[in-house]
Simulated scan of single mutants.
Amino acid sequence: MISLVHLAQSTVTGPLTPAGQRPGADSGDPRLATLTVDAAAPAQVGIWECRPGGWPVVDRPDTETCYIISGRATITDDASGTTVDVSAGDFLTLPVGWSGRWDITETLRKAYSIF
């Protein structure tokens, strides 16, 4: 299940490093850009941006928490069939074992941690 909390909108700007197309994409041309932050912890932390497109996620191997800085997407949970529209100010958690789908409709930028 997706956990979602709406926070006040925040803006993080600046150039990110291009990272090619999102692996597994099956719609659109979801080009990625990232800025990885040294978290000094056993986690991956950074800023991630993706252009419109979609892809499935099957059985996540890790937990991701993220704060949506800008853009829009629809996330679909396979287990429940629930769809959640996310946009600036939303905070969500995708747990280990989660399966579903991301469909980005407006270039999305998020701050993330993966552990």
Rank of each mutant, 00 (worst) to 15 (best):
V5H: 13
Y112H: 07
T13H: 06
L16S: 08
T74C: 10
T17K: 13
S99N: 01
V37A: 02
T82F: 00
Y112N: 05
A33N: 09
E106Q: 14
T36S: 11
A43I: 14
V84F: 10
A19C: 08
S3F: 08
R22Y: 11
V12T: 15
C50F: 01
D90M: 02
A88H: 03
I2K: 05
L92F: 15
R109T: 12
G71F: 02
P15A: 15
S70E: 14
T63H: 07
I47T: 11
Y112D: 07
T93L: 13
G71N: 10
T76V: 12
A43T: 11
W98S: 01
G54S: 15
P52W: 08
L4M: 11
D85N: 04
V58S: 08
G89P: 02
Y112W: 09
D78V: 04
T107F: 00
F91P: 00
P61T: 10
G20D: 06
D85H: 02
Q9H: 09
G71S: 12
G71R: 11
T105W: 09
I104W: 00
A111I: 13
G20T: 12
L16G: 05
G71M: 07
M1T: 13
Q21R: 15
I114N: 01
E49F: 01
A39Y: 09
C66R: 10
F115I: 09
D77S: 04
T34P: 00
A33W: 09
A111D: 01
A79P: 06
P42E: 11
T107G: 10
R60S: 12
I114Q: 06
G24K: 04
R22A: 14
G97P: 03
F91L: 12
E106W: 01
A8Q: 14
I69M: 10
I68P: 08
D78L: 05
S70W: 03
P61Q: 03
A19F: 09
G28T: 07
A88V: 05
P18R: 12
S70T: 14
R109G: 07
G20K: 02
S80P: 10
G89M: 08
R101W: 04
D62R: 11
V58H: 08
G20I: 10
T83H: 09
R51K: 12
V58K: 07
I69P: 01
Q21E: 14
A43E: 06
I75A: 04
I75K: 10
L16C: 04
E49A: 03
T11Q: 15
S87L: 03
V86K: 04
D78P: 02
E64L: 01
I68N: 04
P61M: 05
A88R: 04
I2F: 12
P15N: 13
L35E: 05
